[in-house]
Design a protein around this nucleic acid. Structure first.
Length: 484
RNA sequence: GCCGGGGUGACAGAGCGGCCAUGUGGCGGACUGCAGAUCCGCAAACACGAGUUCGAUUCUCGUCCCCGGCCCCA
């Protein structure tokens, strides 16, 4: 089956055909760094992280570009407020962004261009647009004239007439038309600025993305992504600029991710209804956060709350438990049965669902089905070593795309024959710095006690360990434990 | 107002013209000293009204409601 993706330009699913066979240029709008990233940004990053991973899995040579807007009104305002330099501020926020995204196991893009480092290209583009008559200079600023564009509103479905009908738009002093937008903004006294043919100034918001696409990918990019909130006017304007300048189609496929909401409202820095990535990661492991995002459709809005995160945690644990059990059995399996059919079928289905506009939600559902089957086979004890290995491989293949499972978080302990020696006092089980070997030893004592049917003792140990954050589970011929 | 997306079981959230979504939670059972994990089974849904159809949750039309975009924004 062919890879199909939803193109927001046509509002339909289309077969994916990159411009150059197996090479894919993908540009994702990054963040404007005037404050910490919140977990809505994380959703976008994780959604596209898996999309890029899957494209690579499918054999595409992907060049992934994500930008940083590091000069704009808000950054300048914030820097003034803090009494610091805007570029210094944005630099440190970019560092924090990377810390957050690394924690969330988001693979890095190939290039992270910054507006401040793309100035020559931006100026060249603005000048080109002026030369071609699409843009005009006014009091040191340069504006794109929307009436010069061939088509307006192709992406957002808005038409200029309707926009004019809106009474809220006021004519800016320097613009010829209220819908015209700034390509270059004249610097106010004391602001960060660069020299340009129109005097000192800085780039407008939309132009950087057009310039960066051209610089790092080319006239036409295969996939351009971002949040649905960027459709209008940001992406609309990018199309106008780029197509006017390049005289070539700008984007083959537009992909927009749904926004994270809180109480049904969009999470945003401006509304102040957000949680930062680091806040959330204090309460939930990164795998849970990723799973939460991926257990939904990237295109739909997603409601954020603790209950949903808890549920995601619970659900993910189910998958993790199976993965643990599989890994436990890698050595001990001694049966005849293989798992070829299960693994082949599951993987085929996962690719099938992912091919359908990256339906991570459904791919996960397939994994749950296979986990049930795997658990059943495992408990029957008939699997061969190869069979177990195949299932383990299936899980790690899945994890290469989703990155929501941990390799090994449990330890199996065999319970030896009773030596009849006295067991140590449970009271001596203390201390936070219990080594794995220490825990193994206590779990062994506990196992021996269970054989002696000294359940008071074994329950006491289990309770003690639980208090130290260690869960013990009894199995057929031993026990497994893990740190919470 | 204009543009766009939605309304699915207790909840989250897919999908499809007729066949099990999946997960959390609930109920019953198996296993177990207990617990946990796991397995088996059960209950539970398609906003409303009309139409198309042999048959619609899935298609069409209308109604109601929700959300996003239209200054910045993933």
């Amino acid at each position: 089956m062919a890879l199909v993706l939803h193109n927001s330009l046509t509002r339909a699913k289309e077969p994916f055909e990159p411009l150059r066979d197996k090479e894919v240029g993908i540009y994702i709008c990054g963040v404007t760094v005037w404050d910490k990233s919140h977990i809505g940004h994380a959703k976008s990053a994780v959604n596209f992280d898996v999309i890029v991973r899957y494209l690579r899995h499918r054999g595409y040579e992907v060049k992934h570009v994500t930008n940083f807007t590091d000069v704009d009104d808000k950054i300048i305002a914030k820097a003034n407020e803090l009494g610091t330099d805007p570029l210094k501020l944005s630099r440190s926020l970019i560092d924090e962004y990377f810390l957050d995204m690394d924690a969330l196991k988001v693979r890095r893009a190939d290039v992270y261009p910054k507006a401040s480092e793309t100035i020559p290209e931006i100026i060249a583009m603005v000048r080109g647009l002026v030369d071609k008559g699409y843009a005009y200079e006014s009091k040191g600023s340069v504006y794109f004239s929307v009436h010069k564009a061939k088509e307006y509103g192709r992406l957002s479905g808005q038409s200029l007439d309707q926009m004019h009908a809106g009474a809220r738009i006021e004519i800016g002093e320097d613009k010829r038309d209220p819908m015209d937008f700034a390509l270059w903004k004249a610097a106010k006294p004391g602001e960060v600025s660069w020299d340009s043919p129109w005097g000192k100034g800085r780039p407008g918001w939309h132009i950087e993305c057009s310039a960066m696409c051209l610089k790092h990918i080319g006239k036409t990019v295969d996939i351009h992504g971002g949040g649905t909130d960027l459709v209008f006017p940001h992406h609309e304007n990018e199309i106008l600029q780029s197509e006017a300048y390049n005289e070539a189609p700008f984007v083959r496929y537009w992909m927009h991710n749904g926004l994270l909401t809180i109480d049904q409202e969009k999470m945003s820095k401006s509304l102040k209804n957000f949680f930062t990535v680091s806040e959330v990661l204090q309460s939930y492991p990164p795998e849970v956060v990723r799973f939460f995002f991926l257990n939904a459709s990237y295109r739909a809005p997603l409601e954020y709350n603790e209950k949903s995160l808890d549920e995601a945690k619970q659900a993910l644990e189910r998958l993790q438990n199976t993965y643990n059990a599989v890994q436990e059995s890698l050595e001990s399996a001694s049966g005849e049965q293989d798992a070829k059919d299960l693994c082949d079928k599951t993987w085929r289905q996962i690719e099938d669902r992912m091919d359908d506009d990256f339906s991570t939600r459904e791919a996960i559902a397939v994994m749950f089905d296979s986990a049930r089957e795997a658990n059943r086979m495992l408990s029957e004890g008939k699997l061969s070593k190869q069979g177990v290995r195949d299932i383990a491989d299936l899980f790690s293949e899945f994890n290469k795309l989703f990155d929501v499972l941990r390799t090994k978080i449990t330890r199996a302990v065999a319970i030896p024959q009773d030596t009849e020696e006295p067991l140590p006092d449970p009271e001596s089980l203390t201390g936070k710095a219990l080594s794995d070997a220490d825990v193994d030893q206590w779990v062994r004592y506990r196992g021996i006690a269970r054989r002696r049917k000294d359940f008071d003792y074994s329950d006491a140990i289990r309770k003690k360990l639980a208090e130290l954050g260690i869960d013990v589970q009894d199995a057929q011929d031993g026990a497994v434990w893990k740190r919470r």
